[in-house]
Amino acid sequence: MSGVTLALDLLLGLSLVWLAWRTLASPTLFGAIVLFIAFGLLMALVWARLDAPDIALAEAAVGAGLTGVLLLAALADLQQGDNLLPVREPLRGWLLQLILALCALGLFTLLTLALLGLPSPPPSLAGQVLPRLDGAGASHPVTAVLLDFRAWDTLLEIAVLLLAVVAAWSLGSHPHPNPRIVGSEVLQGLVRVLLPFAVLSAGYLVWRGGFAPGGAFQAGTVLAAAGILLLLSGLGRPFNGRHWLWRALLASGLFIFTGVALGTLLLGGGALDYPAGLGYGLILAIELGLTLTIGLTFIALYAGEQDAAEERE
């Protein structure tokens, strides 16, 4: 490791800890959210340094974009009128403070000891994944793990995402985020230019996931960001999750995934045990569905459910 990269890594790590500290200690909520967005951007850089381009792509879209927008929209809603959110009393008493500080210090110490005590070389599954890539439906190891070797996990994860939307909808509608920037012509102009690029890069990321960093998770978050921008600019019509077409698209990832699982089961292999030669096509089909599901999930969680009554007016 040369001196320059060593300095960069030290600086990155220290700024990460410092930013986390400033975020958590920020006097205002708005400041905390803005610092948290900056924290997400730095995280993306760290992922790139750790040879994890898949995660860097997802973090840049999620940590720096999506989470920030969701937090800011919620803050705008919470600060309307009197803020009657039940906030509990701050911790009192030096004994509690001391115990808490010791717990945090203990966590850090134990994690550090565990890390330093690892055998060399540390346990790794790379030796089992990499030789099997030839028979898998994707030549990029991360995609092969996600959609071939451990496809079951991913199937259940998509179900969790849908569950989040169902749970959010069951809590009733919350007002459509309506910040003052709605209707800005400059933003509308940008969205008109950016939207086709965003959809194109989402498609590109899905296709690329088969053999290089990329895939449904990154593509889905890009799609979600594009959809939220469309809503923010006021160009798109309010998202109406009750429409059957939106619901079908929202669930398409889960439908296609379970369909493939049932199909492979009926063909006699194990569930999600792709027949030889069909793996690539099936994975691409699943990934396209996943992209739609992930993208629409976040749009639905951001926009909330329009009131049916509101819609009719």
Binding site: L66, T67, L71, S124, V145, F217
Partner: peptide
Amino acid sequence: TLPDPVPHAMVLTGIVVAVSATAFGLVLLR
């Protein structure tokens, strides 16, 4: 050596699940 792809896949799904859980938490707060 090449990085172990299994934790990469886990973290990738973890990030997406974390943001959906956060979004749900925010809906609860509102």
